[in-house]
């Protein structure tokens, strides 16, 4: 599989979850496990353009696919979504943040003009237990502006 543009070829246990491959084999620790059952979205990664819970995907099933983790979002410099999250202060404990940013990226890559309703739906699979949703939506709107100006 290809993670953040880097190719990984490895013989693996067919039951290995994608999150374990990312964290333990590729040693990319930005992808977080919150529940292990697809409820919280902390482990969200982008697979071929779609935001997916990496705890519900078997690593073997993404053979040949392109995966983006949080480490692949800011290559060299911060992505406008990250800049926007910083500027509005859309981060508290930070554990949901990588997943939240990836869900946002998957949305805005496809639909830069997403409405507030579409934004809410796109992050509806990402729990923030510090409950900072409102400011994240503000951050996502700010990211839309930044991306449009680029």
């Amino acid at each position: 599989m290809i993670i953040n543009g880097k190719s990984y070829t490895k013989k693996i246990d067919p039951l290995l979850r994608l999150i374990d491959f990312i964290r333990d084999e590729a040693k990319l620790k930005g992808t977080k496990e919150g529940c292990g059952e697809g409820e919280c979205g902390a482990c969200t990664v982008i697979i071929d353009g779609r935001a997916v819970n990496s705890c519900l995907v078997l690593a073997a099933s993404v053979n040949g696919k392109e995966i983006t983790t949080i480490e692949g979002v800011s290559q060299g410099k911060l992505h406008p979504i990250q800049e926007a999250f910083i500027e509005v202060g859309a981060v508290q404990c930070g554990y949901c943040t990588p997943g939240m940013i990836l869900s946002t990226k998957a949305l805005l890559d496809k639909n830069i003009d997403a409405t507030e309703e579409e934004i809410k739906e796109s992050i509806s699979g990402n729990l923030c237990r510090c409950t900072g949703y409102q400011i994240m939506i503000e951050g996502i709107k700010k990211a839309q502006d930044k991306l449009k100006k680029r």
């Binding site: 930005g30 480490e71 910083i86 981060v91 930070g94």
Partner: peptide, 14 residues
């Protein structure tokens, strides 16, 4: 701007 936010948005917070 909280000082820990830069690491957190990049998934680098430990």
């Amino acid at each position: 701007i909280r000082p820990d936010i830069y690491e957190k948005v990049q998934g680098k917070a430990k």
